[in-house]
Simulated scan of single mutants.
Amino acid sequence: MSIRPSGDSSGAAALPDASADHPLLRCAPPALLPFIQLARLDRPIGWWLLLLPCWESSALAAAALRQGPNLWHLTLFFIGAVAMRGAGSTYNDYVDREIDAKVERTRLRPLASGRVTPRAAIGFLVAQCLVGLAVLLSFNGLTIALGLLSPLIVLIYPFAKRFTSWPQAILGLAFAYGALLGWTALAGALGPPALFLYAAAISWTIGFDTIYALQDMRDDAIVGVRSTARLFGPRVQLAVGALYAMSVASAAVAVWLAGGGWLAYLGVAAYAAHLAWQTAQTREDVAPATALRLFRSNRDAGLLLFAGFLAQSLAYLF
């Protein structure tokens, strides 16, 4: 893989939504830094948000089956989420490299800035997909079949912002997909609770990615990129609140269909409280730093929901 020099030795630390003191950026050889950024390994929030629907679904399935969590499945989903988040980010940056070069927040990304060549990015993409495929093949046949369909959604997403104001909905279909896989991997069939949890994760993703898109509204308007943040405009708080309310309601129905349990409902309540806190701070003119902080806080929102489901499944061990 070849890398063109960027002319900026601080490029690894220059991305505005990254942590300059991340251990990977400090310790990795300079030649690997652009690829770490390309896979977003220095920004773990992406794989967390891809992972959490998998974990939530697996834990809810365990609770429905009245058994403890499958730690092997949780580990596999972690590896798969990191690999496929990296692959998705690499593909997205490859498709958007010309647009990214025109947007202040993204112009220093490895492909947009020329620090990674398109050919090197494709090779890196293939390598990450092979890791994801190895993980997927560790599950049962139904989960493998469902997992092989998900790349079709991912392929569409980078182009969605060019023809619809709802690219966040396409992202939701992709990021929430683990809500189906976690269930089928353990239960061996696709049940109604998984479908409602998938709906919950889709609404959640549209909501938090709308908040994320608030950072780029000015530049997006200039280059013609569409988003729900631009679509909702001054009604963004109401819209995000409605999306989050749908997510909470769908998660509660999923728990009910799975057989309930007060610990699982407690997780839903904690999740709802966190989303309400986010909504209260969401505004069209919110500062970019605040929008990024709210977006990143969704790791904690998802972990609260997962913790409730995990606790419910653990309760059946005692």
Rank of each mutant, 00 (worst) to 15 (best):
S313T: 14
V131D: 06
L155D: 03
G267Y: 02
A13S: 04
L231T: 01
A245C: 04
D8T: 04
S150K: 12
A39V: 04
L304R: 08
A200C: 09
A12T: 06
G241N: 05
D300M: 10
Y177A: 08
S313H: 08
A185E: 09
P234Q: 07
G302R: 09
L152K: 03
D220H: 03
L60Y: 08
A59Q: 00
F306N: 00
W72E: 14
V268T: 04
A307Y: 07
A63T: 02
L303P: 04
L108Q: 12
G188C: 08
G267E: 02
A315R: 02
Q168L: 04
A201R: 01
A18H: 09
A63R: 07
N140V: 10
S313W: 11
S57M: 08
G86H: 02
G188D: 00
I153C: 05
Y316T: 15
R97E: 11
G132R: 13
T164R: 01
L197G: 03
F306T: 03
D285F: 10
Y91M: 12
G68Q: 12
Q312Y: 05
L136D: 07
G182L: 05
F295S: 06
T184Y: 10
L214D: 00
A121Q: 09
A221H: 11
P23G: 00
Y177L: 05
P118Q: 08
L60K: 07
S165L: 04
G308T: 01
I36L: 12
A270E: 09
Y212K: 03
Q215I: 08
Y271W: 07
A81V: 07
R26M: 07
G182H: 07
P53Q: 15
N70I: 00
A200P: 01
P167Y: 11
G178K: 15
P158W: 08
L314H: 03
A145D: 07
V82K: 05
R230L: 15
L257Y: 06
G68M: 15
Y212Q: 02
L181K: 14
W183Q: 06
W256E: 12
L71V: 15
A174M: 00
Y265F: 15
A270P: 00
L65P: 06
A249M: 14
V131H: 11
G7R: 01
P69H: 06
L266R: 03
P34L: 04
R119L: 07
A287S: 13
V268N: 10
Y157V: 01
E98H: 07
H274K: 13
F159W: 12
I45R: 00
L173W: 06
L181G: 01
T282F: 00
R293N: 09
I202M: 05
D17Q: 12
I222E: 08
M246K: 06
V126S: 05
S19V: 09
L195V: 11
T184H: 01
L76A: 12
G260W: 05
A127V: 15
F232D: 07
F77K: 11
A307M: 09
L171S: 09
